[in-house]
Design a binder for these strands. Sequence first.
DNA 1: TTAAAATATGAGTAATTACTCATATTATGT
DNA 2: ACATAATATGAGTAATTACTCATATTTTAA
Lengths: 208, 208
Amino acid sequence: MARPALKPRKSPKQARSSETVEAIVEAAARILEVKGVEGFNTNAVALRAGVSIGSLYQYFPNKHALIAELLRRSVASLRDGVTQAAQLAQGAPLREGMRLLIRAAVDHQLARPMLEKLLDYQEARLPMDTQRRAIAEDLQAQLVNFLNHHRGAVSVSDLTVAALDSQAIARALIDAAAERDETDARLIERRVLAAVMGYLTAPPQRGD
Amino acid sequence: MARPALKPRKSPKQARSSETVEAIVEAAARILEVKGVEGFNTNAVALRAGVSIGSLYQYFPNKHALIAELLRRSVASLRDGVTQAAQLAQGAPLREGMRLLIRAAVDHQLARPMLEKLLDYQEARLPMDTQRRAIAEDLQAQLVNFLNHHRGAVSVSDLTVAALDSQAIARALIDAAAERDETDARLIERRVLAAVMGYLTAPPQRGD
DNA sequence: TTAAAATATGAGTAATTACTCATATTATGT
DNA sequence: ACATAATATGAGTAATTACTCATATTTTAA
């Protein structure tokens, strides 16, 4: 009942309105990057998009739907990158496959580091709509599947946990690097790979 | 000029007002945990603290000063834990010393996972006052110092980066575990240790 | 006992902001 | 050319919220 509607109010039929929607989404991203969640308000987004506040509400039922859309696009883009990487990783040894997956994550997150960090935080607080859930589950499934092909070399027994934790490690190290204004993707990739491989292949202690 | 003042407006002289301040700080923490930054407002904090809004502004010049105080306390508490752990870690081998340091971090963050995650995000956006900077630098220095004692075994050349990244890994894995409602500190500790050791001791690739 | 200092109160204010709606403009199909 | 659908507009509204200030109460100290 009180669940916020995140679906588009109206979907654009003409090219004109598609451009409007794109302008709004991009403006929302910029505002989030520059002002953070606190400075994020619909009037500012509309202004930045060069569009009236009324137009914004033609396509987004409320403020949260804007962030939900950014989140949807971000996860979808990461998922697509990982899908490609997972193709290449087919049959490769654990370490090399992992390197490719991590590369996809680094490239994705380094494109808009501030925005991604912010969205990562929002992810936990915003209810996940069906569409985003599907994409997120697809992404997670691909990682688990990859790990499963190498389960002999992986010492963590719960691959679901392993996939989630690997994502968490990658995100954290990429965020940290971006905070220091690092831009060398390969360098970051190496460090993430080291941490993730350490995590995955550490000799099991007693118990687990 | 436009820099927000985060210092207390007035410092409590009597026991009565100390209790007021404590009530306010604790209420601020609860509100952040339950409602997030979006639902965080001074009126709500005062109400929850059982104190008038006027009293709140006697001790905190503005809303951000409340979060700054929470941040200060959190970093101070982590620093204290790490200081103790670093004592014990003196002379221990890298792995065992690291385990102690990580244990401190896990214990700290697992005490109030939601709050810590949120504060972590705020940390980047709020200007760091002199006091918090000093504490944070002390913490960082202790980690660097510890790593320096084992620099033979650490393959990362920049120990400052290594310390920051280790903290990032720990925070991320603890957050992820808390998100899954895990509570077994030792289990989390092991996973963090595996990742951090992997990060620190990975054989260097060509370059660095 | 009493003056001064410390502390507490909460109605009130100005600013911000999410969102609506009546109306205007533009595009499409026939 | 024209009717209809799609799209765009932005002044206006109700709600929220950060913060003030004049006043009241409590504590301290002489």
